[in-house]
Amino acid sequence: MRARPDSARSNISSAIGANAEYASLVTAAATGDREAMERLLIRAQEAAYRFSLLVCGHPEDAEDVMQDALLKTYQHLRQISKPEAFRTWLYTTVKNACLMKRRRHVGEPTNFVSLEQGVEATSGTIPFDVPDPSRSADQRLIDEWMGGRLRKALKGLPPSYRMVVVMREMEGLSTREVATITGFSEATVKTRLHRARLMLRRHLEDE
């Protein structure tokens, strides 16, 4: 028998709840319910924006990824056969869009590490390329969003670890869903989540 602390129970039920909610919106939207379609597309865009900003760190890219998620979700709804798999499809699409954006960047910093690239925990902090210092009002709002302390700590993680921790802890996806999206085994997802949590804690405590 497994023992489940409260935090684990709440994460599991939130993953199941979010999937059921998405599936119900997808089903309603596919039958022409405009309100469901609007809600679904807004949620998909917000998820895309959060993922892109937290994992890749570029607000301009996040706007583009958000637009891309809107169009692709709208097109995908016409051919969807498994509403319960929508969330996995969405994050796979968003992850790929983020990767494409990063590859297309002109003057890519030499320290860029791709999302797929594994970096061992022992290698410590990977330098994270930061966007242009001339920040717009929008940029300032985004910097303040969600607490600068945690975002700074997230930036200190290797990209593939950051991606796992964002999807598991913040987007509420299950280990299996993250494995499907990233192409990692479930064991690798668990290992990276474990190391990412330890690194995050260290970064937060070092401040």
Binding site: S7, G147, L150, M170, R201
Partner: peptide, 8 residues
């Protein structure tokens, strides 16, 4: 740390 992530 986990709580902070989920709250954020």
């Amino acid at each position: 740390t986990i709580g902070l992530c989920r709250e954020a």
